[in-house]
Design a protein around this nucleic acid. Structure first.
Lengths: 140, 140
DNA sequence: GTACGTGCAAACGTTTTGCAGCGGG
DNA sequence: CCCGCTGCAAAACGTTTGCACGTAC
């Protein structure tokens, strides 16, 4: 009688497409992680925080799988790794943008690429192409 | 007859002052490390490279002491830690400047702070002061 | 059915720490 | 002489890997 059986899984649909689009099999664990990562506001999280979040969601995933999945998402260009202050963060916003880092709390937030203007870039070494420019504004 | 006995150690004098100025006892090991780090051109080195350099200089220092000394120098503001591309570098140039990173070779070089101009910094969070702005120009 | 993903535990490389002995002031 | 530094080895840390089992297609 119902047009779809899994009405309650509707919210996972876009995560499923996201994973499939990246060539990743949409397994339960990956769906749970991708759903948490990409729904809601952009996040800057550590692997440990992802693992903790998965447990809280009653979707227990092993830490190894968390790392595997995060690495796959990075390869697919859906996630970015940011190393600041001796900590490695995974940034759910893979687009070009910069970061504001609070040295006291270790908290990270985004700065839109469009709001920042950089002038006076040096001549690049011969045969080298610009990959990207990362800016970290540190506050205390 | 000689006004100074240790004429051959003259080249370590400035390193000695550097350490003393930072409140660090100028021990043999620290002198050897500081001398290698701060004489010659600015360097971007890993802890392992510092350790290897010490061995080559016939001034063997344990790796633990290398880390201890580097951390002390960082606290003293004489050294800066830079994490790029999954590697941690110690930068002997503690002054304000930026970095150019070659993603292929993993090599790091300096960009003088004066040559770069950044405009459009966001308003800082309430009660926060700007610590510094780090720019990494990545090339491939 | 098969290829790929998962969980666990063990391996890994890097950095820190605990402690007995040494050396600078 | 004393406190701080050193060396060594062991621990801690975050991340990766190997393998038996499970699951999506």
């Amino acid at each position: 009688m119902y047009s779809k059986q899994k009405k309650s899984n509707r919210k996972y649909d876009s995560s499923k497409e996201l994973l499939q689009g990246a060539g990743l099999r949409p397994t339960q664990q990956r769906l749970a992680l991708a759903n948490w990562l990409f729904k809601g506001c952009p996040k800057h999280v550590t692997a440990e925080q992802v693992h903790a979040a998965a447990r809280k969601m009653r979707a227990p995933v092993s830490l190894a799988t968390v790392y595997n999945t995060l690495n796959h998402l990075i390869e697919a260009g859906l996630l970015r790794q940011v190393a600041i202050g001796g900590q490695v963060y995974f940034d759910t916003n893979a687009g070009g943008h910069h970061h504001l880092f609070d040295e006291k709390s270790g908290r990270l937030s985004d700065i839109p690429a469009t709001s920042l203007r950089i002038a006076g870039l040096p001549r690049l070494p011969h045969g080298k192409a610009l990959s990207r420019v990362d800016v970290v504004v540190r506050v205390r």
